[in-house]
Amino acid sequence: MNRESKIMISPLNTELIEDINKTNDSFKLYGRVVPSLQSGKWSYEEVLLDEPREIRFPDDKLDWDQYINQEDKTLFLAYMNHTCIGQIRIIKDWNRFCYIENIATKKDYRGSGVGKLLLNKAEEWAKQRKLVGMSLEAQDDNLGACQFYVKQGFILGGVDTLKQSSNADIGTTLYWYKLFNEPIK
Rank of each mutant, 00 (worst) to 15 (best):
L49H: 10
S36G: 06
V33H: 00
P52D: 09
Y30A: 02
H82Q: 15
F27H: 02
G40A: 14
E18H: 12
V34M: 11
K41C: 13
K22Q: 05
D65H: 14
V33D: 01
I20F: 05
G40S: 12
L75A: 02
E54M: 08
L62M: 09
K41H: 11
L62Y: 10
D25K: 04
G31N: 06
L29K: 14
F27T: 03
S43F: 06
N24K: 02
I17H: 03
Y67N: 04
L16D: 04
S26N: 11
D65G: 12
Q70F: 07
K41E: 12
Y44N: 02
L49V: 03
V34Y: 04
D59V: 03
D19G: 05
K73V: 03
L16H: 09
D60L: 15
I88E: 10
L77H: 00
E51Y: 01
R89P: 00
D50C: 05
L75G: 00
M80H: 08
K22S: 02
W42M: 10
L48R: 05
A78D: 11
Q38A: 11
V47A: 07
K73G: 08
L49D: 03
Y44F: 13
S36E: 14
F57H: 07
E51L: 02
Q87F: 04
S43T: 14
L49Q: 05
L48M: 09
D19E: 08
A78Y: 09
R32F: 05
D60P: 09
N21Y: 02
S26M: 04
K41P: 02
R56H: 06
N81G: 06
